[in-house]
Design a protein around this nucleic acid. Structure first.
Ligand code: SF4
Ligand code: SF4
Lengths: 149, 149
DNA sequence: GACAAAGAAGACCTAGAGAGTCTATATTGT
DNA sequence: ACAATATAGACTCTCTAGGTCTTCTTTGTC
């Protein structure tokens, strides 16, 4: 019932991209440096974000990543589901009787279904832009500090 | 970001106890049988529920468990936090800079804090009684079926 | 008092997930 | 041609979740 590093890093990477000048392409290594993400770890995450259509990749020299959508139209729920899994609180809600033999007489299932709906609705309303906006200078500042060091 | 078996079993066990006649004491093995919970697994969960003051244990022959509170005053959030951990969506919210060096310039933290609040508020409003009520007959039926089999 | 039936406590095992690191390959701008 | 870059995936390590079982202690009942 908690969110792991993949999502954390993904949100930070996307926020960072959202804070760049339009059209700017940033390399994996740069994002990692600026956002204090372990080296190379981002490669796997970015792959998912590209596959999910949230960012655009540019292979080759001077390549890198840029957002593929408006930051206002990328929700935290999108990010979560893209880099991790469908937003599901209890596995039976996704896998049914596969996961639980008690399914047919269960009465708590609907509780989790509703809780999940509440959460999904909330996270669906927050966008990367909501995070990047407030980050703005801060994010870039950290970047230059690290580059300087 | 999903709920595991411990919570599932705990909720079922508590609901089952709530559905018993007042004062009835049920053994671990019986709960396991009636609720289709793996043998012995409940012992560890019940320990936590006892320690958390949600159920009362009765050692010795003819011993077992019974609720220590009204089923209306046990929330799903209580159960979760008793058998698993504090309801926290992002670890930094609990462990601070211990967990994340980026904490000081982070802007997504507050998002998770709010999401967590929304979820906690929802789960805090659902009680074991809400689940047990609807279970009633069903729960006991499964029990007798399994005993017969 | 003896005995059986419970919980308490905790050791033990296994599979898989999460996090992180690195390399080999394909692609592309200069 | 070369350097820089994404892509793909192998690899390791540690921790957790889930499950099983054993030993000890307590207690009701005969
Ligand atoms: S008992 Fe109910 S809530 Fe639990 S896994 Fe089965 S169907 Fe889902
Ligand atoms: S970056 Fe922000 S949200 Fe992520 S762990 Fe650090 S403080 Fe928490």
């Amino acid at each position: 019932m908690n969110v792991g590093r993949r999502v954390d890093y993904a949100v930070r990477a996307l926020s960072f991209l959202a804070g760049q000048p339009a059209g700017k392409i940033v390399s994996r290594a740069d994002i990692e440096k600026c956002q204090d993400i372990p080296s190379f770890y981002l490669s796997k995450i970015m792959k998912d974000l590209v596959a999910g259509g949230l960012v655009q990749s540019h292979i080759g020299s001077k390549g890198g990543f840029s957002l593929a959508k408006l930051p206002t139209s990328i929700s935290i729920k999108d990010v979560y589901e893209t880099v991790e899994r469908p937003l599901v609180l209890m596995d039976c809600l996704e896998r049914g009787a596969d996961y639980c033999s008690y399914c047919s007489v269960c009465t708590q299932k609907s509780i989790w279904e509703e809780a999940q709906k509440v959460l999904a609705e909330f996270l669906g309303r927050i966008s990367i832009n909501d995070i990047a906006d407030r980050q703005g200078l801060k994010g870039r500042l950290v970047g230059s500090l690290q580059k300087a060091g």
